[in-house]
Write a protein that binds this DNA or RNA. Sequence first.
DNA 1: ATAGGGTTAG
Length: 524
Amino acid sequence: MMLPSEKHVKGSLPFVSHALPSTPSRGRAAEQTCLALLQACTSLRHLLQTTAFLLKSGLRSNPLVLTKFAAASSSLDALEVATSLLFSPHASTHLYDAFLFNTVIRSHAQSDRLGDRRLAISYFSAMLRCRLLPNKFTFPFLLRACASLPEPTSVGAQVHACVVKYGYSSDPYVRNTLIHVYSGAPSSLDSARDLFDRMPKTSPVTWCAMIGGYVRSGFSHKAVALFREMQGRGIQPDEITVILVLSACADLGALELVRWLGSYVERENIPKALPLCNALLDALAKCGDVDGAVALFERMHAKSIVSWTSVIDGLALHGRGNEAVRVFEMMKGAGVVPDGVAFISVLTACCHSGMVEEGRRYFDSMKSDFGIEPQIEHYGCMVDLFSRVGMVERALEFVRTMPMEPNPVIWRMLIGACRVHGRLELGERIAKNLLDKDPTHDSTYVVLSNLYALRRQWQKKWETRRAMSERGIRKVPGCSSVELNGEIYEFIAGDESQLKDRGVYEMLEEIGRKTKLAGYVPRH
DNA sequence: ATAGGGTTAG
């Protein structure tokens, strides 16, 4: 039988397994064939067939083939196939090279499974154990894995030490990625900023790493401030900068800046790729211009699940639950399959508009129609839904049937429901329980002491306050922001200093008067 | 043969 040539294999896509020789020859021809087969792999089955060929041809010690094999496995989401071959007891590790490890590390770093990303770091250790030197490509791959761990800083700092040890600490790619890693957690934001400030030469990527870090760590106003600094230095924001700043605006409600960014994109002819349109759409909706968002949505020629979800969420957030549900149904009608995030948005819509039975139906349809296992956030939506309409028993029953341990967010929703609907003893029991589990959370104390105040149990209220201060816990003031004439102001509960002279508090009183006139009865 | 920053989430 003739050995299939590279041309033969490429021309016979999809895979033709009968073209495989039964007794493959060794050497260069086998290598070429295997590489071509790997390139043509489009399914797990192809990959396994190619693995069989690879083993039969004695190619398991060929670094080039192994590297391509790792890359092919990665794109087929079959990392374990690659690593079980690469790192089996029969493998001859002395033939490994840095390129192979880079490929394995990159594949694992890109995976959406947390376990894989942790493995990326293990493979780096394995690389060092094989006495291979990491090169300039290794660290950006490795740091990307660190950035998406739940604890980016601790692992990141260890990798940083290696960066220094192997002499890559002045490489701009590595430095940008380090800023990205450190800026992902509030505890290491200062380290990130320090690296950023000491960058000899910045690129738009450097700015984005820092701005994006502020957004991810929940410091959107700092993200906007840094964006202003960037503009002040005459650096042109690129597409990704705009996306990040829009995301900060969505958080801050900075509608004027959103509109400015929209016109900037038009003026500078920045390509309006889908993620940019989605960011603009979401920011408009979150900042209150839901109709503007819907208009943009209708103009967009390409829409993804993100676009639909942003619209649904925007409508839900502004109390337009019926429209949100209608858009969700339109999305399904358009053949877009909802994911877990889309379900959160439609459940939020039901929640904000009191649609209990609709919410229940959507919750059930997640699993039955789409095979999506509800996460704790979805259970949270349901608890919130029942709680808001006063169905405290039903909320409690729902929590009892949850397959996972309720988180503090859910307990606090229940406490809120108990308080609003007069189930004070029950609320007290839950709050005390929660306090035992997590004695460091500030607002649990406040909520409990307010419950005592409602029942006129002043002694207990005082004791709760004392326990709080004895444990050194202070209430972090609630915070929001307002945009006035293009400036963004922090708006902190109990601190009137910054906005005193700007008519903000007069406006607040005005709003308070109007809501009371409309029939609102304030409760504690 | 291989690099850095990116949109939705009670």
